[in-house]
Design a protein around this nucleic acid. Sequence first.
DNA 1: AACGAACGTTTGTCGCACGAACGAATCTAT
DNA 2: ATAGATTCGTTCGTGCGACAAACGTTCGTT
Lengths: 164, 164
Amino acid sequence: MSSSASDMTGPGDGEATPARLRNRPTRLLALVALHSDRLVTEGLAGLEARRWHYAALASLQEFGPASQTELSRRTRIHRSDLVAVINELAERGFVERAPDPADRRRNVITMTPQGRGHLHRLDDLLATIEDDVLAPLAPAERLQFTELLTRLLDHHGRSCFRDA
Amino acid sequence: MSSSASDMTGPGDGEATPARLRNRPTRLLALVALHSDRLVTEGLAGLEARRWHYAALASLQEFGPASQTELSRRTRIHRSDLVAVINELAERGFVERAPDPADRRRNVITMTPQGRGHLHRLDDLLATIEDDVLAPLAPAERLQFTELLTRLLDHHGRSCFRDA
DNA sequence: AACGAACGTTTGTCGCACGAACGAATCTAT
DNA sequence: ATAGATTCGTTCGTGCGACAAACGTTCGTT
């Protein structure tokens, strides 16, 4: 039912299959993201942080204090996993977890000044790492790249959650 | 030390921090790749396959029979994990694992005709999924996107392994 | 014959994403 | 006002992908 020729019995044919692996966008995406993630994870580990820590802190900085469920929506961190993240951040004094007086089911997560400092450090680090990841791209291409990524994320993201 | 303003004590400032989360390319990349991977994984699960199966089969198709270590280099699948992949593929008759007569430490992995058929099916499926992933992009933009990804992969890939 | 290296394999670890279930608190319908 | 459903935080367990360590076997080298 499909187009590509594949019924040639020759085991070593190299004409009809022009480098699938290198041309599958999904695979390219996965591999590049893997490298990026690895660099980010390693870099953050140097500051004893993880990617989720950054997401949580950045979201708090942008949108202010929030309950854990709301933070979960914003950062796309699963509620279950957010617990440990808040634990770790609170342990180091970067956020404060207090019961919401208006609704005692919720906790209100607030970023502390030290948290802001930490976020600032993480931001600087990530900027460096990004520069490394995008090294082979000219400035205009980097904009193009992030623009395309944003479009993809918006398209698929909006169908599941709102914003990011 | 750095440039971005962040020493304002206002908790809900929204000016000096323009949407970090949405603009961090590394994060965009991770999120988009996550969606893509999820779609691919789900799709492949429908054919009882995983991403590694495709990588292994595609590599065999492109470059012919190989030892497991060589396959590992080509597909970037870790030697440890490749064992199970070959087991699963061999169990279903898609590849054959035979000891290399020239070097009895190695196994020679060969794709069978049924393996070719299976790869062909996976190829068709992946094409559909890719079309879904890249849906919001015009054809020219898709080319741009994969071109940028390829450049990134080449730059970072060549420093670790050769080819892909 | 002996040593080091390569290969395949097993086992375990880590990070990330996710689902199930539970107690406590809240909301709603009656 | 009380019963039932819902929300929230939390704990526990699952699965996948990537990876490191270690072991027996086999091969080169000397």
